[in-house]
Design a protein around this nucleic acid. Structure first.
Lengths: 337, 337
DNA sequence: AGCTATTGTGTAAGCGCTTACATTTTTATA
DNA sequence: TATAAAAATGTAAGCGCTTACACAATAGCT
């Protein structure tokens, strides 16, 4: 069943059938209804490939993330997919894993599929060395590129993120003001958000005119038990710390396991805060305080910007949300904020 | 840059260019290399839509799941996407939410995109009433349908799942043999795996010739705190229970919160086992025992079957794996199994 | 009624590829 | 070296849609 069959049954030309499908040209109400009826009767679905070829779009958006099984990414995927669908777009998902080359390769593959745009999920796509982000700029020459939770200033690149620097400085300052000066900043990878969080952490020390021992900044990429071991060894090395600001909830839970192993009372003797407000938070005991980075808003903003761009309207290159602190059982001094 | 441009530069016809792209017809080594070089020089990518129209495939598979942010689904998506990609297929992802109509609608939408096959992730797609699975059978008339973690006997439908009935009967029997007769079976929704688990639970009682109070079977669909409350109210109603077999890890954690609220010693006074071996398990304290349903194998099997079908070879309509029990801190009697 | 705008519909030329079939070139064989 | 078989390449007709342009029908004027 194709457009010719429909046109024959309706006694019109294929052009008229096409017109009612696309709804952009005028067709008399009578013939429109007739064609619609015949389509429905025959359960006609236009051939998506032919349509794609004619219109040069199949209404699909490429989603690129490191790992769809990650809590943060999987939620982002959910929100993005939902928002895209509401705008009649479908999502092609691609998980790159950790490698840089893989990221480039999969991005190319997505472009080869002729997606209308690409959304890069996660700040790990943005590297500190500008040259290494070149492939993103190149991709943006072909289709709009949306970056979720990262920032890159380039033409046709639109970023939606939360202000990790600001919230981290707030968190850190609150710790310092509450007398918690033996801080540890634990972060997972050299990502855009990681760097911003670190800036905030350092910024709070600078604002308080306090010295900052570099050993208090730990770049560590491990599982929950590995994080616990790591902190045990850091403590064994003689560094004293009673509060951990962890770049994500899993690192935070590692710290929680450490604190429990040391039999510290939480939060009075030892405090912990994570990021992302993942489902993990309420599994722990005490439940984990976490920075809520407004992921749903972030995703909706990203898609809104994308839709604007795709319809030829302008969109801001950067949309920044401010994060919230969700205080649960592993801290007790944010309520004053 | 299209196939004409390449053919002109190479001084051959577009047919020859097409032949080297598709690699199925003979082309002399000399011209093949020349064309390949010219393609590389010019960074040529064939137009995916035109290709799709000509070949009637764009090498994409539709993935349908209720919620990509769910731990189980998001891992399945990761494994499936990876396996598909390895076979040069891309994944279009669609999250349906809970509704039945939405499932039908999104499945149709996927077919309209001309995917080569559809993978239904999660047993909630399979309903107890055969008539309600009709839309899946219909879809299978168009493209192969793969069901992950569910079973439906129909032409062109291929299922990859683990034996939830068997493992649940084992788990339940182990409880009973260990003297834990005050069992509670908690499950979330009327899904295929839920029904199979329930069969296993009942089967163990039947095998042990023990009576089963229907109040011990609880169909409950709530969050972790809601589950805790639910169990508190069940206990308040006078039902005695010291062991919970929970259909997934979140329900299990709800039960864990209940047990802690009651200040039971775990696992000596109160035992809990979940399903899915999610990342939640090791966040808890004690860490949660869980049934490992071999998701990665399941996904790989599913994709293997699909690839077989797509290449015209036969594939088994059902591939069933046996699950493992991962005993952690919330039980202590599976080590004997 | 006669003329012009407006609206509705058809014709045909793409979109960029694949591939059956025809044709030419090369290779193998006697 | 003539000839048949095999290999390489070209020609042209699709695949199923969109849309610019042409033309016909209708409506709105005086």
């Amino acid at each position: 069943m194709n457009i010719y069959d429909i046109s024959k049954k309706a006694g019109v030309s294929i052009a008229t059938v096409s017109r009612v499908m696309n709804g952009n040209a005028r067709v008399s109400e009578k013939t429109r209804q007739k064609i619609l009826d015949i389509m429905a009767e025959n359960d006609y679905t236009p051939n998506a490939f032919a349509r794609g070829l004619g219109l040069n779009t199949m209404q699909t958006i490429g989603l690129l993330c490191a790992d769809s099984s990650d809590q943060f990414f999987s939620r982002a995927i959910y929100y993005l997919e939902r928002a895209l669908r509401a705008n009649h777009y479908d999502a092609i998902l691609s998980c790159t894993g950790a490698g840089y080359d893989t990221r480039m390769e999969y991005l190319k593959r997505l472009l080869a599929k002729k997606v209308d745009a690409v959304i890069l999920i996660g700040s790990s796509f943005i590297e500190a060395v500008p040259e290494r982000n070149r492939y993103i700029v190149d991709a943006a020459a072909e289709v709009p590129v949306i970056i979720l939770n990262g920032y890159l200033k380039a033409p046709n690149v639109y970023c939606s993120l939360c202000d990790d620097r600001e919230i981290t400085q707030q968190v850190t300052s609150a710790c310092l003001e509450h007398g918690r000066k033996e801080l540890l900043f634990l972060y997972r990878a050299d990502s855009y958000s990681g760097r911003r969080k670190l800036e905030g952490f350092k910024g709070a020390f600078a604002a308080a005119e306090l010295p900052l021992d570099p050993r208090r900044i730990i770049l560590f990429n491990g599982s929950i038990p590995e994080t616990k071991e790591k902190l045990l060894s850091v403590a064994a090395d003689g560094l004293i710390f009673d509060t951990v600001i962890a770049g994500d909830d899993e690192l935070a839970i590692g710290a929680l396991k450490y604190a429990k192993a040391m039999q510290f009372d939480i939060p009075s003797q030892f405090s912990i805060i994570g990021y992302n407000n993942s489902q993990f938070c309420i599994c722990c005991e005490p439940e984990l305080s976490s920075v809520d980075n407004q992921l749903e808003f972030c995703c909706n903003n990203a898609v809104a910007a994308l839709m604007s761009v795709l319809s030829g309207k302008p969109a801001p290159g950067k949309t920044m949300l401010s994060a919230n602190i969700l205080e649960r059982g592993t801290t007790d001094f944010f309520k004053f904020l």
